[in-house]
Design a protein around this nucleic acid. Sequence first.
DNA 1: TCACTATATCAGC
DNA 2: GCTGATATAGTGA
Length: 115
Amino acid sequence: MAAVTQRKTEPVVTEFAARVYAATRRIPRGYVSTYKLVAAAIGCRSSRAVGQALRRNPFAPEVPCHRVIASNLGLGGFSGHISGAALIRKRALLRQEGVIFRNGRLADERQMYRF
DNA sequence: TCACTATATCAGC
DNA sequence: GCTGATATAGTGA
């Protein structure tokens, strides 16, 4: 049946945002990537635009936005906040996946996933 | 068009 | 190492 199997009213996102989410979902568990790498992966030179798309993240938690950090190995932001409890939660989430953060920075650069 | 933004990079100190 | 300024790209009003 189902002439209209409306599955959840997919949020309307732009083509650019869809690429950002697709690239982010490619990041395997236990690895992290940076805004710049994601931007480069989708053919964009502005990491800022990536951050804007991830901030909206209508596909959370399907899209592991917490696996995207800043290029300086910092946590960057999370849940609309660039610091505070949100960052602590982001660090905890990554730690559960095997990504260790030291002093608010990625301990092992080897865990940075390259597209 | 204007303002805002989960960034990145450079210059100066 | 930190701060301020600038570059760059996309979104929403």
